[in-house]
Amino acid sequence: MKMPGFRFLLYITLISLSSAVTAGGFSFRKEKLKLQDTISFISPFEEDNERCFKCHGQERYEYTNENLGLQVKALMCTNRIKKREDFYNSNHKNFSCTDCHSGDYINFPHAGELRMEQKFNCIDCHGGDEKFAQFHFEEIESEYQQSTHFKLEADGFTCWKCHDPHSYRISIRNSENLKETILYNNTICLSCHSDFNRFQLLTDRAEINILQKHDWLPDQSSHFRSVRCIECHTKINDTILVAHLIQPKENAVKRCNECHSRNSMLMASLYKFQSKEQRRDGFFNGIILNESYVIGANRNKYLNILSLVIFGIVISIIGVHIYFRIIKIK
């Protein structure tokens, strides 16, 4: 006689695992960092830009004081340093510095009033342009104007606080490594929300403590690594890829079920772009499985059916057994 217990267990386990593997497909993509150590891109304005970068491209710069006839070495203010590798990896790498800044900056020393120049906003270039229509910049602008950040415009908040035009690069659309994208995006938020000096440029609030504020969140570090701040702090908008309507903290998502369910809101936020690009059969919200595992959101429908069938068989056998016991008693 054979061993039904062992064989049954082995059989079911193999079926479970193989159905999960075949159903999932598990075709993982090669993870590649977009940010490159060596820049292969050559800007048509490289020579022009180098006139700026030779001082602003690093911490230390040199100039000749013609009045005194001295060669001076000085340190650049931190917020005036624009790294070449950041700029030539950014969205605006094709630009000349003087496309956005006054041409008068060519002269050194720079005239003091140049600091008061009117700076462009995203919508000044990206708005009303057919080329950018698919990205719905007008909708983004509209969301921004309703967001809690917009209330700080009078204090100096602009698009650039989050999207530094010298270094910002598209992340979710060209990402091949979601964890890196999440880190990149969250670093933008944390550049103010965990840096007291930058934070106090816009508010008089006495303290910030991200970890303490989120101590209600189970497995906090795992959440911080796996989702962006904006997943919980913005209102989802179907028209645009990345929601910009940052909500007051009272409105932040705090219900676990919003993400941890079959109708996970992550499919409309973090995984929105990927969910349109790729499909994985068998698993509910299978696209999430490429990068992470979200309890409640990832289930395999074949395993669900299989478990119900096995459960049904066991209950039926017990039912039949009870029936024969009753007959025997009668």
Binding site: R255, R262, N263
Partner: peptide
């Protein structure tokens, strides 16, 4: 409750959290 969580707060008798 965790495996079959839905948009409603309570699955079976207990909330997800």
């Amino acid at each position: 409750s965790m495996q079959y969580t839905g948009k409603q707060d309570y699955i079976l008798v207990v909330s997800f959290a």
